[in-house]
Design a protein around this nucleic acid. Sequence first.
DNA 1: CGATATGTTGATCTTTTTCAAGGATCGTGG
DNA 2: CCACGATCCTTGAAAAAGATCAACATATCG
Lengths: 256, 256
Amino acid sequence: MATPTAIAPAHGGPQGAHLLHPVVRKLSVYGSLTAEEQAALAGLGAGAQRVEARQDLLEEGAAPDCAVLVVEGIACRYSHRPSGARQITAYLLPGDLCDPDFAHLRRMNHGVGTLGPCRVARVSRETLAGLTGRHPGIARALRLAKLAEEETTREWVKNVGCRSAIERVSHLLCELHERLRVVGWATKAGYDLPLTQQDIADTTGLSNVHVNRVLRQLRLMRVVEVGGRRVDILNLAALHDIAEFQADYLRPSAVT
Amino acid sequence: MATPTAIAPAHGGPQGAHLLHPVVRKLSVYGSLTAEEQAALAGLGAGAQRVEARQDLLEEGAAPDCAVLVVEGIACRYSHRPSGARQITAYLLPGDLCDPDFAHLRRMNHGVGTLGPCRVARVSRETLAGLTGRHPGIARALRLAKLAEEETTREWVKNVGCRSAIERVSHLLCELHERLRVVGWATKAGYDLPLTQQDIADTTGLSNVHVNRVLRQLRLMRVVEVGGRRVDILNLAALHDIAEFQADYLRPSAVT
DNA sequence: CGATATGTTGATCTTTTTCAAGGATCGTGG
DNA sequence: CCACGATCCTTGAAAAAGATCAACATATCG
């Protein structure tokens, strides 16, 4: 949405299919939606508010009162250890609806916050229930999107559990590339990424220093250049190879 | 279920509330179930089949045709890297229903297999749909159980992402203890655990050798003794301290 | 009883972390 | 516009955690 309030100016807004709201683009991956369903979905983003970088959307331990739809920017789920160490457990990209079911919870076991500047819309339980009740296509797409999210979390366990540093970072860059591409915020050449190296470290279970070294190595290998809030992909095939990246887990498909 | 076909003989079957099926015990955590609902749930386990250790229940890449209910024993979700390295991403304990929604998938991105000998029941989509359709209490409990499973996977990301070896192993032992206790297969003193050190290594992202050393350290610290397919807890408080274990994530509670 | 799995230990090597310091960048207020 | 502080990035050196390799012990099971 290249609206006047768009956030990422450097390399412009979403690519292609300009008129589609990211949540429509994302959910369309899981099955076709009627025009009516698309309109209803896009309506969710109508009241989106601007939120600065590094702000909490849902606090650790709080009782959530609504779901959150990311319209623009990057947010994350995170959790802190008593020592202060932070682990990021998921990214929320444009089009991602942060957990419908959470709105029913008495207490959050993790927090949700922005990483870069965002535009987000809060969605009440009632609105969401109405939407899925009236539009079976949306309900179905949301179910599959959730399945994809679960599979993604499992892939992250695999990533931090048994891949080397360079593989982990590469895998993260591949996943972000693929997911942003779906909603039009990435091209083959790369994407804007408002993360610090510390954020990448907290995601991959590495130290910020080592992330820096891995990124330098990837740059020297002429695979990808990360810096200046931007990811420039020089050799996508090589990046995929290093990461052993298979995008399947991002797009589950149902039988029916 | 101290039935004639019970598997773990060493320290006997489930403790307390002997008559309740594990899936009833587990789901009761998320809200009270009517007698009728309990009976319907217990009926799922009626046709349970014995499965040996280290057998696939759902293969990586296959199209699942049904859900799987673990009645007894321990199974897991796992994924292999091209190199052959294995990452375990979840444990399935007695009372766990392996992913209802999966039955709709065209292709599994991970496998499900037994770790020790198990008794499992296959549950068709129709059976499951009928059950949740007729019994709102079951539907609700399954939703919360799934939420707990998601939260658990995120906790695992945190575990392998930012905890030391001894913390990771301790956390795993705490989680298994708590989950098995709910379904009556653990006491304060410990539980039977048919895992090899390699299995623990594949779960925690460590080498088998290092797992061995961590277990020795925990034994010397007189915290817990792991061996002979058995976990004996000597000092539960100390184990929780080392792991920074907070059981909250295992039992989400809804507002309504 | 041998064969295969698993567990145990020591020695060595690699990866990654930690610590420390300096440099770049960016936003802000004077 | 520039100076300033704050944050982020970068690099080196040293230390630590954990992996790997190799050998042997010990179940376990047909």
